[in-house]
Design a protein around this nucleic acid. Structure first.
Lengths: 187, 187, 187, 187
DNA sequence: CATGAATGAGGTTTCATTCAT
DNA sequence: AATGAATGAAACCTCATTCAT
């Protein structure tokens, strides 16, 4: 499978971007809307993504990979605590304005497509590394397991988005959660 | 607007219950499925709820009112802290098994219908009372504002549901959050 | 599954008739055309026949059942030879003006649907009875097996239709075949 | 109209062969499938055959011309009866395994394209010569007209194919027909 | 010339909603 | 009042055909 022609690759990217936009705003949007926004014919969308599900998965995969890359970058940061909380904050902040990332985060567990699954696993793994390092550095309490911390990441994103939190309130919400994560409960 | 006939009221209730079931499991389900489960004709559904949106809003309103009632009940509890955390825990626990309540909670901000809006406001108000009393009783830190705490309620519900948390992990997640809410940060 | 309402049954019949017409003339016709001819909305067609394949099978089944009934009727005729040749002639004659029956006859072997399969089997069985009786009455040579005689029935229908034979030529074609079927094969 | 370049002629032949294969198996196949099998780009197919209909006609014409050539060859055979029956048998036998030839034979009457029409006429003429000579040689009864004999040729091909006749049954079917064609119609 | 990407028209199917019984 | 049939708009997807490389 040799690389796509230049124009085709451009179109693929345009479609993916359009899909991110469209599905980010209303997850049930039609494929036509994506085509309109991308300024291509409907058939072009289907040439690049043979079914709607595959398009959705591509959007999802794309997002997850970007998150994973960011987490991976941060995992090389010296200050493990700053890295962990910085990532957490960034994800939740962006979700506030991009419903779709939150959807992606939650869908990550439920989706069928192979690529999306792998991207989800990769993202969770990278986040797990951030958490581990933060715990070893003493920045996050040791008895916080991955599943619940991940659920908190997803949940905070969703909650902030769904209730239309102001940036200030969002900051305070994260402050509460971070206090909980840091609390030297027993350890 | 005289009261509905007995059988009609029965039907209305049956339809509402069916809708809760159906939309709880797959939010994009068709109205036919609701009619099937309620064992009434499709036209009967539309007689009681002239449009699908109105049906959805009725489901939502119903749920919100039940939550509000529960919160109102608890607000008469002597132990304000137990009331607040008990309510929070119950909501999140049930959301885990009922996707739709989480949807309802988040939709509460976005929805148009008058009845649903009022129910949402009522529910938030009742929850606000629980929070207030818990804060006055010293069970929850004073600098936690309503918006962020409400966002946490919604978010924890969504996060737990979306990531398929086990009951144990859900308990630990709530433990982290509650520690954050209690933390005697005087500041 | 209680019987359809009167108007629904009418519509079902109208749709079936329209489908017979339309597919009889061009087997690749669209379902829309059927709806147009039947003067119903497209969705009505799909209410009665949930998929296009099922519609096609219903048409086929209908035809096969009519042929089977005719064959069964004739099998009670005293003159077994006249019954056999009469049936053969009638089928071929009508096929000449109704491409679709020929299609049905040939499709009968290849089709998946249970109802259509049974109707095909029933029709072949009824024709087999006609053949048997004609052979026992000495009107058709004994060494003519069912498969080849059935193939001739199908083939004559198709050939007459495909080449646009005049009624006279069709009569002569059948004359040739009948001579072959009667010939006191020396072997 | 100068001759095509060597590679272009190759491609044309490859496409035609592929089309014969593809349409022989499923008459509604897409042009893409032909291109895939021929291992050329879709645009190349359309360069050689500007529309799908023209491609189909080319396939048809090709087949008819081959049949015509075979008939013409046989018309120089000394044994006129053997030539006629041999041709008939060969056509029907091959049709059994190549659905498409039967389609071609029947389509021959109905098709629009000039080339295909001429090829059809040529083929029928060549077959007519075989029939004439066989009749003059006393191998086929004189009162059998061309239209009905041609219809039998087409019909036997179709019937054998459509009912999935075994080679043995096909032989018996042809035996019946040949007996009819030979019968010294005394009556 | 050859290619593969792009396209819009059209096909099948679903669904919220209205009508007739 | 309740039912189930009817409806058209819209969704997903395919395909013959044209354009740009």
């Amino acid at each position: 499978m040799r690389p796509l022609r230049a124009d085709a690759r451009d179109n693929r990217a345009r479609i993916l971007a359009a899909a991110e936009d469209v599905f980010g705003q209303s997850p049930n949007a039609s494929t036509d809307e994506v085509a309109k926004l991308a300024e291509v014919g409907i058939a072009t969308v289907f040439r690049h993504f043979p079914t709607k599900v595959e398009l959705l998965e591509a959007v999802l995969t794309d997002r997850l990979e970007r998150l994973r890359d960011r987490a991976a970058d941060l995992s090389r940061d010296d200050d493990a605590g700053a890295a962990f909380f910085g990532f957490f904050t960034q994800v939740v902040s962006e979700s506030a304005s991009k419903l779709a990332i939150a959807e992606a985060l939650s869908a990550a567990g439920t989706v069928a497509g192979e690529a999306a699954k792998q991207a989800g696993a990769g993202m969770r793994e990278a986040f797990g590394v951030l958490l581990d390092r933060a715990q070893q550095a003493g920045a996050v309490r040791r008895d916080a397991g991955f599943p619940e911390v991940y659920a908190l990441l997803v949940g905070c994103s969703r909650g902030a988005t769904a209730t239309g939190l102001t940036p200030e309130a969002r900051g305070r919400m994260l402050g509460l959660v971070y206090d909980g994560l840091r609390t030297g409960s027993t350890s």
